[in-house]
Amino acid sequence: MVVLAIGLILVGIFFLVVAAIGTIRLPDVFSRSHAVSLTDSLGAICVLAGLALYQGFGINMLKILVVLVLLMLLNPVIAHATVRAAYRAGLKPQTEEDQ
């Protein structure tokens, strides 16, 4: 159980690192936000699932699941708000023709 938990947390950390690399490598706000959404999805899911397994069944596991559900509901809203603000401020996403 503990081994599985640690494995999941490590996989989650791998995706968090990839998201950080992506945030640096990608060219503009719009594509960078994709990299950030990688953190919300697989990164957070794996790390929190690992933590839940590590805690074992009980009230703490339920609490972690509540955090996970809230994260899945709130993170898209934040990402959407950021990107919409960028779009309304007049930033145009880079497309193939610009490169």
Binding site: F30, S33, H34, S37, L38, D40, S41, L42, M72, L73, N75, P76, V77, A79, H80, V83, R84, Y87
Partner: peptide, 15 residues
């Protein structure tokens, strides 16, 4: 639908 699109990495709802 908007939330699912944003939640899926690689696509994001702008407006």
């Amino acid at each position: 639908l908007g939330n699912s699109v944003t939640l899926t990495p690689g696509t994001i709802t702008v407006e």
